[in-house]
């Protein structure tokens, strides 16, 4: 029984990390392609229409929903601090994939900043 519990815990954690990373990558990719969107009331309405017309954006929101429900399921069994490896791993994976999949320029300063933020996130949840 405890072994089963242990397995579910890590399974949920991987589901959270994979779905969050996939969702954010797809969203960033599609939104860059669609050009700078406005944040006026009209612009937000237009965004809703863009969601409906792009498969990857729908998939991205589906991934965010999976990540959200997996997170809720994890919190029912584990303390909030156990969710930290999830946010830390997500953060690292996404920055690396942004560099190699989305071809973003991640220089020394951005890497240093990201590492500081990572350290802060880990400290914050102790």
């Amino acid at each position: 029984m405890t072994e089963f519990h242990e397995v579910t815990k890590w399974l949920l954690l991987s589901v959270i990390v994979i779905s969050t990373v996939l969702g954010d990558l797809l969203q960033s990719y599609e939104m860059k392609r669609s050009g700078a969107q406005k944040v006026t009331a009209r612009g937000l309405g237009r965004l809703l229409r863009i969601i409906a017309s792009r498969k990857f954006l729908l998939l991205s929101i589906f991934c965010m929903a999976i990540s959200f429900f997996a997170f809720m399921a994890l919190l029912q069994k584990e303390p909030l601090s156990f969710a930290v490896p999830a946010s830390a791993a997500t953060f690292v994976c996404e920055t690396i994939l942004a560099r190699f999949v989305l071809n973003e320029t991640v220089g020394k300063r951005r890497t240093a900043g990201a590492l500081l933020v990572l350290g802060g996130v880990v400290l914050l949840s102790r």
Binding site: D24, Q27, S28, K32, Q37, L47, E94, R110
Partner: peptide, 16 residues
């Protein structure tokens, strides 16, 4: 608004 932000800036800029 997060989607709009993603259309303005890099993912590796937005995350931190």
């Amino acid at each position: 608004t997060r989607m709009a932000l993603m259309s303005w800036a890099d993912l590796s800029f937005v995350l931190p």
